[in-house]
Computed example of a mutant assay.
Amino acid sequence: MVRVTTPAGGVASGDALIVGRIFGIAAYSSTEGDSVELSTIGVFQLPKASAAVLAVGGRVAWDNTAKEVTTPAAGRFPIGVAVEAAGNGVTSVAVRLDGVATAAA
């Protein structure tokens, strides 16, 4: 767990959040300016870009505009690997967060 300051708009429990170079899942709801703990490793079921085709063990990234997991590409934040296959039309996927603080690709 990593403690960060909640950004503008606040965050709900279970929401994905990028703070600087850290990606994590909020452990609880928090209002703007308060602290919140983010899980940066572990397996989480996350929303997925419907058209993205992900293989077990394939690298995945977070599209912070659409707020969903997708394939790595420029402007997307690398977050870990898919732990299940998720094809076209599937709207969520289990992802193992790798806890690596990084910048968008």
Rank of each mutant, 00 (worst) to 15 (best):
S39I: 00
T71Y: 02
F44L: 07
T70C: 14
A105M: 12
V43R: 12
G99P: 09
T91C: 02
A51T: 15
D15K: 06
S92N: 11
G87A: 10
V4A: 04
G33C: 05
S50M: 05
D34R: 12
T65E: 13
I18F: 03
S30F: 01
G33T: 02
G57T: 09
S29T: 15
V60K: 07
V90D: 05
V43S: 12
L54T: 08
S92E: 11
P72D: 10
A27L: 09
V100L: 14
S92A: 11
G89V: 07
L46G: 02
F44W: 15
I41G: 00
G9S: 03
A94S: 11
G14W: 03
P47S: 14
A74C: 00
I18C: 14
A86R: 06
G24V: 11
S39A: 14
G9K: 04
V69Q: 09
S30V: 01
E32A: 10
G58I: 01
R96Q: 15
I41P: 00
A73N: 12
R59K: 13
S50T: 15
Y28C: 04
D15L: 03
I25E: 01
V90I: 15
P47H: 09
V2E: 11
E37T: 08
G89A: 14
G9N: 03
A55Q: 14
L38C: 02
A103N: 10
T65N: 14
A82G: 10
